[in-house]
Computed example of a mutant assay.
Amino acid sequence: MRRQATTFPVKDYNLAATLSSGQAFRWQWREPNWVGVIGAHWVRLRSDTISITAEAAEPVSDWGWLTEYLQTDSDLSGVLRTFPDDEPMRAAVVACHGLRLLRQDPWECLASFILSSTKQIVQIQQIVALLCERYGQPLAVAPGQPPAYAFPTPGRLARVTEAELRACKMGFRAPYLLATASLIAGGQFELARLGQLPVETARAELMKLPGVGRKIADCVLLFAYGFQSAFPVDVWVLKALRRLYFPRKHVSLGSLHHFAASHFGPWAGYAQQYLFHYIRTKTGEGR
């Protein structure tokens, strides 16, 4: 049956924390809803303690794309039980209760994090929005809503110039995005196969792409492919690890990666997102 809106039950799902925690950059809060784009779908979401209601612009026969993206079937309580029983992790879980990891499209995730280097979340959102407006496919939206656009394909971006990309305010990231789009559009790099590789091999493959270092590769492995041993370390996670776990020591980045791999358990990537959101929004460090 095709429906334009649907409601599905959830337990311990913090939609606001999930959509604003720096995993994805297509969401805007327009009270009382979150409005965004997933693939070729404009969607409006609202939640309460037991459900999420979604509204599309056109009737939908299968909402699987949304539940997969939101990961509504994941066993959060089971994930949280694997976290280390230490004070920083307990505080992060309490402060960010119900935060989930999304499962994103690999190309959009990769491109977005290439654009994220040295930028704050609001700036990344602005760059991505401008890129989509200029080069993405227009989408149907609900009456009275602003225009919305799909994320541009690698083939579309491979046909634009570096100067045109720089006009989207992405600066030095433009040649990296252009080169990566060209490799993928030309079939020289296949994103689909990464999910079948061991995480170390998939990381090494991603780091061959222009502008992709360990942190961006780990973001893509975690947010697009669900590799839970991927533990992205950006300036916020670096601050969290040093302040919360090594407050009076100078610890190298390599040592922190080793610590994360051994300390946070089989769902280390999930633990990373709790630490990231906690240190950025709940401790005063982000102000």
Rank of each mutant, 00 (worst) to 15 (best):
Y245L: 04
Y245N: 07
Y245C: 13
Y245H: 14
F246N: 13
F246M: 12
F246S: 11
P247W: 12
P247I: 13
P247F: 13
P247T: 08
P247R: 09
R248M: 06
R248H: 15
R248E: 15
K249C: 10
K249L: 12
V251P: 01
V251H: 03
V251T: 12
V251A: 08
S252E: 12
S252N: 07
S252C: 08
L253A: 08
L253I: 10
L253W: 05
G254D: 14
G254I: 06
G254Y: 02
S255Y: 03
S255I: 00
S255Q: 15
S255A: 15
S255C: 10
L256S: 05
L256C: 11
H257G: 01
H257T: 06
H258D: 14
H258N: 13
H258G: 12
F259D: 04
F259K: 05
F259T: 08
A260L: 06
A260C: 15
A260P: 03
A260F: 08
A261C: 05
A261T: 10
A261I: 06
S262C: 05
S262R: 14
S262L: 11
S262M: 11
H263Y: 13
H263T: 13
F264V: 12
F264C: 04
G265N: 10
P266M: 09
P266Q: 11
P266D: 12
P266E: 12
P266I: 07
W267L: 05
W267S: 11
A268E: 03
A268P: 03
A268N: 06
G269S: 01
G269Q: 01
Y270S: 02
Y270P: 00
A271K: 01
A271W: 00
Q272H: 12
Q273K: 11
Q273G: 01
Q273W: 04
Q273D: 04
Y274E: 06
Y274A: 03
Y274H: 12
L275P: 03
L275N: 02
L275I: 10
L275H: 00
F276P: 00
F276G: 00
H277S: 05
H277C: 08
Y278E: 01
Y278W: 15
Y278I: 01
Y278K: 03
I279W: 03
I279F: 00
R280A: 14
R280P: 03
R280H: 06
R280L: 11
